[in-house]
Design a protein around this nucleic acid. Sequence first.
DNA 1: GCACGACCTTA
DNA 2: AAGGTCGTG
Length: 410
Amino acid sequence: MAKHALRSSGGHMWRSLACAKSELRLELTLACGQSFRWRESGEGHWTGVLGGRVWTLTQTDDTLWYHVYKNREGQTCGPAGTSSPGVKTSETRTKGAVKEVDELVAVASVKDAEEEEEMLRDYFQLNVKLEELYADWRAADPHFKHIADIFTGVRMLRQDPTECLFSFICTSNNHISRIQGMVDRLCLALGAPLCQLDQTSYHDFPALAALADSSVEARLRDLGFGYRARFLQQSAKQILDTHGLQWLKGLRSVPYLQARDALRTLPGVGNKVADCVCLMSLDKAEAVPVDTHVWQIAKRDYKYATGNRQKSITDKLHRDIGDFFRKLWGPFAGWTQSVLFCADLKKFQKLKEMPRLVQPKKEEEDEEETRIACKKKKIKTEENGTVKRAKTKPAGHKKANLSVKNERVV
DNA sequence: GCACGACCTTA
DNA sequence: AAGGTCGTG
């Protein structure tokens, strides 16, 4: 039976990409709740599905290593139709055709290799220079600076919009470990099988058509999705019925607020989920998903609206907190937020206890600097919801209005 | 604009 | 309660 690749044990073909850890740290980026599709299959080795192929990734100081699982024919390990064209299976081969087929295999694998390197660069958005962004954020925000020494290399993934949307519909009122299990079961139940490694089956994320089928709600309720089962099926159906297959991806070339409002017309998609999809799959780096957690961070670390006793996060609070962080961090505020979010996750707290070269700063000093930084940028942190900022616009309504240009200036 | 409760499960 | 959303008042 096929096994998960391990770089140390040989027997698998590995390719590599130059990439410093300051630009990417797999163990943070793949496990901080952006994607629910990656598992640590061996020490420092991460296995998951990306673009219909099964990958294992690992890294050394300056190199990102990757293996893509193939069968003996050189085909991508997956269902018929997703592999390189022109490659015959062994059953259909005749002796005379072997050489020709081998050449086709060789050509196909070179093409695959180029394609796969590009897939990885695209997925990790390696054209974005994270170190430079960190430098900007450190200069703008003392609290970020405090976190940034430990949590380097936390980078935004550029995910498939369908996978991102339907995964995040599952996140409401939920926690990461359960979400991971649910997304797993979703793929197993409705996604095309790709391959099996050790005891694990890998499936592609379900297609929109598979999610839209009327049998899906009952099926997913049985699998423990609760009330989200209906949201998933209805959203898929609504997209196919009223927009079409390419609609979601098309939102990549539309301004942030327009894309967000369009997503919010879908059942089970409110401010938070829409912002996640915008940030993580639709190229909206300025989208700041505000959940209870981020609100805690805003109050605790930025003294934002400390007097506010609101129980739930209203539309207005979403807007105001988003604006606050965009003003502090700039046009990649969503990326910054993910670093702080990651640093706040329970599973990464042990990293903070490890000895560091830099002497940790006293907390009061840190807070005072935060206050000064906010004051410099003229950002209010202690308003209690009654103070309005000049550029705040009225709440977006539920219906997407593609003709209105209400893109916010950041 | 804001508060509240319901919604499915599991820890 | 958990990385919310939706309907109602």
